[in-house]
Design a protein around this nucleic acid. Structure first.
Lengths: 214, 214, 214, 214
DNA sequence: CATGAATGAGCATTCATTCAT
DNA sequence: CATGAATGAATGCTCATTCAT
């Protein structure tokens, strides 16, 4: 079924979809490297070797392509956050620590491979217009809540303090990650420092949330 | 006549300084509300009821006023961070917790009074141009290092774990604060949530860094 | 297909070249009539009935179009100066006089047909910026040297005084021509006076340079 | 009487007249060095160390000061032309040659001392606005006519050809002078070339206009 | 469907001129 | 009378968007 579905796309159709994806990709690169306001539609088109009129056959306007670029990038990011382990996959503190480490490593790997994505979301997209700003803030909030669910699992399982404010701590964890991203954007090549940063966070979290401490 | 330096400023001089300050203020409001790129010099002038040519009597160009606005805002922010208690003023964990609470409260108060400043620095200034982005990233780094000095004090005094990575944890704390700022910018009126957020951070920190835990 | 190069130009291409030429033409008219500084890009565009943004598709900026207008006009002028007879085509005084008369007539004809060109070069372009001023002065110098080569021929052939300072006299002749241009620009319709002026110059030259007089 | 007349000017009055003259002088320098359009009223004021508002107490507007500067400079120039010898002071060809040489030397001296005046009149003033252009063209014409009167004297005295077109030749002489001025403006330091140029003109004129030649 | 030529809204900046002090 | 602060008309230039080919 999935096979035949792909088959039904004519060559022209596939080309069309491909170009559309290429435009999103090119726009992503331009936006993350030069910034949204500094990027002209012509820059995106030139990068692809297409006429800039063609752009408008695929996207309504500049804001529209931004929308798609951001949505695309958000998807990558949320896959990153969501993908790993289910919140409930961990049953004790040591496993949690390991899970944190895996997530931390994964983040660092993502950062190395997608510096533009992080730059775009954290630095660029925050100031394009009020609506986009709101989307970013919402993403941050959602990420905090999702993180909180991991913590809630720990409380329920008893390896985190019963009085842990899971929601707020979840938001705090997102903050720590954001600071890590900023460090990475400042010094993209200092992998060691980044790993050390991850370790420090994990230590702080494990010690700070473990049951049996105040 | 020798009484005070202020006395020696002629009325014209005072007007001039006042207008200059007013322009910075107006630009600050416009930049933080609409964003740098969306703000025209004419917007700033109109807000003050002055001709837009007048603007250029006080500032070189649009980038120049941005520089002043940002520097001004950075000063406010660093005063906020630096002002409170000296890093070495605290000698035990309970005092540290209290110091954190005071700083937290102070931050929340500042946020209430200067929402624009936070919005400008964290959301807007990150994407105006590469140089400004770098300044913001530097500020974040500096803030982390300054925070780290508080932690180093705790380690030295023995109320924080000897193996605490003070530098990295300092950066993490700045991250938590940034997340708090974002929460505030999302929901400026939910003071209770913000206070709860502060409490959660403080608890995490105290438990996570205290000596005698791993 | 190999027939002619012109055939290979698509219609769009031809339109493009045509518009480009039209812009140079319109700018030429505006610059020569109102002056460079008094001419706005919008004036040029309006004259052609095109949007002023269109202008910038064909020329970098205002200085760029000036460059093209001037170069174009210089070409016309140098063709005028160079075209006639070779310097060495004349072998005796009477022929020289005839050559002078032909050149004089040709100049007058050119002036009638291109008053703007003369106005632009002699009055307008001298004061646009230092670089352009220099170009005009250089053109004058070059013209003098070229004229001198005609005189050198006469000296060599023996129909001009052996002690004639050909170079300096060449410059002087250019000066007389410039004065003629100015007279023309003052009184464009007095063709008779201009012809009389040409006669007077020729008489002065022939008598003043002929061999056998001091 | 002249003494008392000066005496009747109060000190304030004299200061006023002096400043007025200073402004004309400063404007002259700026206009001739940078050009009219490139000169701001503030430049003129700054050069004098006065407020630029003060300028408007002495002159109506920018065009007005130009008027005065040009008039002033024209006066200098016409004094130069007129001052030397009366047209009728010369009675034979050799004296005429000497008169020409004196005038030529005087011109070169003036050029050395007043390069700005020549630049202003010949290059700058020709393109400020139609009215000013006309004034320059008129000056050229007048100068030609004045020169013609010298020639008419020679014809009358019999040492110039009876058929000399004095008027047109007068204009031609002005043209030769203008070319000399341009050479000077191109190469202000080559005094020898300029003298040689003067000699060449004089030779051409004497031989070209003398009675007893064709 | 792709193209790029055309367009004009929009904005930063300059500077002659006015006028309150 | 001198001053310089204030003003806004004027203009060069950019770029998102449209549309004829």
């Amino acid at each position: 079924m999935t096979m035949s579905e792909e088959q039904t796309l004519s060559r022209a159709e596939r080309n069309r979809l491909q170009l559309r994806a290429d435009i999103v990709e090119a726009a992503f690169i331009e936006f993350s490297e030069r910034g949204y306001h500094q990027t002209a539609i012509a820059d995106i088109a030139r990068r692809l070797g297409i006429g800039h009129g063609t752009f408008y056959r695929y996207f309504e306007n500049k804001r529209d392509i931004l929308e798609h670029v951001i949505t695309d990038t958000m998807r990558k990011l949320t896959e990153l956050l969501a993908g790993e382990n289910a919140p409930t996959a961990v049953t004790n503190l040591e496993d949690y620590r390991e899970q944190c480490r895996r997530i931390s490593a994964r983040f660092r790997e993502f950062a190395r491979g997608n510096p533009g994505a992080l730059r775009l979301m954290l630095l660029e997209a925050t100031s394009i217009d009020p609506e986009m700003t709101q989307r970013i803030l919402n993403l941050v909030t959602m990420s905090g809540l999702m993180t909180a669910s991991y913590l809630a699992n720990g409380v329920q399982r008893g390896f985190f303090r019963a009085d842990l404010d899971t929601e707020m701590t979840g938001h705090a964890i997102i903050g720590m990650i954001m600071a890590g991203v900023m460090r990475f954007l400042s010094q993209p090549d200092d992998a060691a420092a980044l790993e050390r940063y991850g370790e420090a966070i994990v230590s702080l979290l494990v010690a700070g949330m473990a049951a049996g401490t105040v």
